[in-house]
Amino acid sequence: MIQGRFFAKKGLWVSEYRIESGLNCGGHAFASEGFLLGPVLAEFKEKRDQLNRLANEVLAQGLSNKGRIVPKKQMEFLITAQGGVGTAEEHQFLLDHYKMDSVGWGTPFMLVPDVVNVDNTTLDLLKAAKEDDLYLSGISPLGVPFNSLRGNTKDAEKLAIAAEGKPGSLCPKKYVALNNEFTEKSICTASRQYQRLKLKELDAEELPNLEHQKKYDRIIEKSCICVGLGTSALLVNKLDTKTEGLGVSVCPGPNMAYFSKTMSLREMVDHIYGRANMISRTDRPNMFIKELNLYIDFLNSKIEDLTASTTNKEKSSLVAFVENIREGINYYDQLFSEVKDRFEDTKNSIFSDLETSRKNLNLLYLKI
């Protein structure tokens, strides 16, 4: 909303607001401060008219200030959503209950060779992936948590050269050469140049073995994803990979755990609209419950990183994180109690999962 008004003030109209789950999507993960998808969608639904009116007012003023033509008719925008949607029922619920204009699907399409270039080795890894194989990693040189797949061939390549005493990438693309920690000219934290310098600095600290290994692993964890994410397309289309190598990075969302077979585009579309079911597992949680537990896991990792030097401000931030999740759980309790003729086959498990999540959250709160 703030961004829309910011652009409108400059005479630019945002034609679509895409609401994504902070953790239940593929690629880079931008976790909120515990704000869950359901309550966020509800707020957009509630304030849609207000946002439209304010944005149009700001746009008109911005265009007028620039001496530009002001539209006579009110401008409109779309509000769309995505993040862990996996069934036709969830898809339709977002459209009907939250009045979304459309719903996005991403991760399952990685198993649709008709539309996505995924090499056979990676495709087999994706089909076999379970929850523990899909994790929030630190491999991105951008320093942002990145959804990844354990055992991907780029990581295997990375660990092999590190074991040979040559950690880091040759950095052929230099798309993410943004670090000036050691050099005047920016370099990438996944590059061999950076990692050698960083490891030299680490050795000089003369830390205990366990602490040294922990820091070592974090340094060499960075991966050349600007190359790895594109290599699969080269392999599928039998193009030269001499510069890039054969290692493939891949960034599925957690939803991949529930899709386990190659699909045609027709099968995928039929699944989205309820004409077919491409999920063979019967234990897939509701998309809102999945995201909730991802946030609780994320919070747990933050709490595990607490040290004696953690400030009161940082602890207060974690307390606020807990409260936001707790409000989200209360919202879902009310939502699924009030919604009729939806999720009837899974409501019992949804309420059970909510209660379990509430208990887990309370236990984490005691650790702060």
Rank of each mutant, 00 (worst) to 15 (best):
R326H: 02
K290G: 04
K302H: 10
S337F: 01
K174C: 13
T121D: 00
V269W: 00
E344T: 06
A257N: 07
E323A: 08
T311V: 08
D101L: 03
E323N: 08
Q195W: 11
G83S: 14
N24F: 14
L41F: 01
M287I: 04
T183I: 08
T307D: 06
N255A: 13
N348T: 06
K73V: 01
I329F: 03
I325V: 10
A88T: 09
E291I: 07
D240Q: 10
K73C: 02
N180P: 01
G138H: 05
L136Y: 01
C226T: 15
E46V: 02
L125H: 05
V144H: 10
V118C: 05
L265Q: 02
N65I: 03
F30P: 07
S316I: 10
D240E: 05
P141R: 14
E164F: 03
A42S: 07
M110C: 10
L246A: 15
T243M: 08
R342P: 00
E184F: 02
K340T: 04
T310K: 05
P167Q: 07
K222E: 01
K166A: 05
Y295C: 14
L364Q: 15
L142T: 15
L361V: 15
V70R: 04
K313E: 07
A162D: 07
G245I: 09
K302V: 12
T87D: 03
L170R: 11
A60F: 01
G84Q: 10
D283N: 15
G83C: 05
K66Y: 00
G84V: 13
I2H: 05
V248D: 02
S232E: 10
L299A: 08
Q82G: 15
L142K: 12
A308G: 04
N237S: 12
P145A: 13
S191K: 07
D345Y: 02
N324S: 02
F7Y: 11
T282N: 15
L318T: 10
S232F: 11
Y135W: 02
G11D: 09
S316G: 15
L292Y: 04
K238H: 10
I79A: 08
D333M: 13
E291L: 07
Y135E: 01
E304P: 06
R196N: 14
P39A: 03
S316L: 14
P141W: 09
D124N: 14
I19N: 03
I225T: 14
T107V: 05
P108F: 09
D283Q: 11
S349Y: 00
S137C: 03
A190C: 04
I139L: 12
L361I: 15
K158L: 04
D203F: 05
I161L: 10
K73S: 05
A320C: 06
A156G: 02
V116Y: 04
T346F: 00
A31E: 06
L210Q: 12
N117F: 13
